[in-house]
Nucleic acid binder design. Structure first.
Lengths: 131, 131
DNA sequence: CAAAATACCTATTGACACAGTAGGTAAATG
DNA sequence: CATTTACCTACTGTGTCAATAGGTATTTTG
């Protein structure tokens, strides 16, 4: 399941892309347009600014703007930063404790394949595709 | 995320397929071989027997057995019965309340596409493939 | 310089699902 | 009749989700 964190993040980025012009877009406006809680959005965005997908400017006249052209954001990139778990099973997660049945597990390859299929889909669509 | 319910269900079916011979396989044995809780497995299986993927025989000498050849079970079939939510987002779920933003939603097609990609993968693999 | 507007940070909360545990009943066999 | 099995239902601790809440830091504007 994709949680609201990832889904809202995408909606925010679409909204910013649509409304930024050559200025910045206050998150308050985005929250109003999208019908989402400003306070909630505020805690979803930090990973995106930290990794440089967005720039946030404080103070009056500030707000957010994109750092790239919409076609240069892969959806997978956004979701991997905002979703806690995007892998179908925990044992595929980076840094997960090595499963003791790893050697005899008959299903791990299957889950790895699913993970690949999902990430390929997410990475083959861009923000532009959603606009 | 695929939960333990679906993952265990698959391991159980693999185990039954491997061990049934022409008799029945007691779940107690499966639980021991797989290192899983018998009591937990008992509440995962009912949807599978109800829908005829497994037959369960009570009493001494009883247990479970498959009703088809392993190559005739699609993985997606098993997971859709044992997992609560397999859809990537709630609004795609059958019987979900119609989203009021449905008409203007820019992302629903994208999520529908992801759902298709996942289900295609799951349905193009069989129990046989995991053995 | 003061006030307003903005991003940014951290704590708390209610509801719910997950992953079991527990204790039983029903049916079939030897 | 005793044993073995499936099957049924209730309960529980833990954690995540989806917010709400209250604050601080920074910048622009009047």
């Amino acid at each position: 399941m994709i949680s609201t964190r990832g889904r809202y993040a995408l909606r925010v980025m679409i909204d910013i892309a649509t409304n930024q012009g050559d200025g910045h877009v206050p998150m308050k406006d985005v929250a109003e347009r999208q019908g989402l809680s400003l306070k909630y959005l505020e805690q979803i965005l930090p990973p995106l600014t930290r990794r440089g997908l967005l720039i946030g400017i404080q103070g009056k006249g500030g707000g957010y703007r994109l750092t790239r052209d919409p076609k240069d954001y892969r959806i997978g990139e956004v979701l991997r930063l905002t979703e806690k778990d995007l892998e179908p099973v925990g044992c595929l997660k980076e840094g997960a404790p090595v499963c003791e049945r790893r050697n005899i597990c008959k299903t791990v390859d299957f889950w790895q394949g699913l993970n690949t299929v999902v990430n390929d889909y997410l990475d083959n669509h861009t923000l532009q595709d959603l606009m």
